[in-house]
Design a protein around this nucleic acid. Structure first.
Lengths: 196, 196
DNA sequence: AGCGAGAACGGACTATAGTCCGGTTCATGG
DNA sequence: CCATGAACCGGACTATAGTCCGTTCTCGCT
């Protein structure tokens, strides 16, 4: 399957459904910003949006889905830049450079929304690995890490170091600068067939 | 703080408490084995053990704590082997070899109990990084990866690839052999000051 | 042995995620 | 403009994790 098809297609939608979706996203964004993602219950979101719980869950599945929907726009920008933006993030630069540019850009995105991404990845067990975005990033990185004896696994390993739960937990320990440098080193050596 | 002190000291315990702890651990082990960790509720464990829910939660904190308690014995064996077992796992071998031996041994342990370890790491947000075991392994690896420009981060990165959630999710993709080989490569290159 | 302080017990209670289904609203074709 | 069925709505309902606190049991001390 080509990389492009892993991006979610937009479905057609009834008018009332669209109205309610917008209301829910607005309310959720506001509440999450005000009180923190963890502290907001789904009941509160439903009430603030003026819809029933059933509506909320039918549309977004669970809290992780709601978080993912809020991140969707920002994530598409990144996917777009990777697919057809200027190098080194987009096509044109050498693979090794593109890989480094990718982890840099991904960390920009992640550090900007850690709490939300964490929610989208951890609310349901295994959620992170099932959503389309993970498969997209994994495929992309695996293609770039073509110097590795096993690009598939190398890609998984790099993404493991970019998991929101992991980053959020080690950030107090190492700080942003060392984190970025460390991940850059990791992706650089992961793309190489290393010495014995 | 020296490595040895990160291991949990044994507290003294009242007779009824000891009796109940044993009953809970027995019941939990049996139920988890029979029905799978996910499918067993804490009420079921309490009932099967013949204790109240309050007792269960006071002693183990949450489901993650219960899982951790069940793994405790097995984990101590590994810690013991690392501290004073024969090389290359124990002291005596070169650091690079010890690091590889460690990830091998850790994967033995992990693959034997994925579901349980996963529960112990993911039931509460950030749980994995708070328990003593993580700090122990992190410290150990950081000492061994002394060729890296940032052993602390390198150690975190390797452990990220050993998270139960991660391993469980990619295992169907890559299989056990490629997983082991990939992690071995990762730890080998993480311990080196890499080119440019 | 008897006793008192404090640790441990247990089950009723709360909070929250997620499900279900009878009623309502929208969009399309006549 | 209206009929019609598909899609959507909402809030009562269920299941489970985790808390609280009055009661009971241990164990060291006299």
């Amino acid at each position: 399957m080509p990389l492009e098809l892993l991006r979610t297609p937009p479905p057609k939608e009834r008018a009332d459904a669209a109205r309610n979706r917008a209301a829910v996203l607005d309310a959720a964004a506001r509440l999450f910003a005000e009180r923190g993602v963890e502290a907001v219950t789904m009941d509160q979101v439903a009430t603030a949006a003026g819809v029933g719980k059933g509506t909320l869950f039918r549309r977004f599945g669970d809290k992780a889905g709601l978080a993912a929907a809020l991140l969707d726009a920002r994530e598409r920008v990144l996917q777009q830049a990777v697919l057809e933006g200027p190098p080194p993030l987009g096509p044109g630069a050498p693979n090794a450079e593109r890989a480094v540019a990718f982890v840099d850009a991904y960390l920009d995105y992640l550090l900007e929304h850690v709490a939300l991404v964490r929610m989208s990845e951890t609310a349901a067990p295994g959620a992170r690995y099932r959503i389309g975005a993970y498969r997209f990033w994994h495929r992309h990185l695996a293609i770039l890490l073509d110097g590795s004896p096993d690009p598939e696994h190398a890609s998984h390993a790099v993404l493991a170091a970019l998991a929101a739960e992991h980053v959020a937990s080690i950030l107090p320990d190492v700080g942003e600068e060392r984190l970025r440098a460390g991940v850059r080193r990791l992706v650089a050596s992961a793309g190489t067939a290393d010495p014995a």
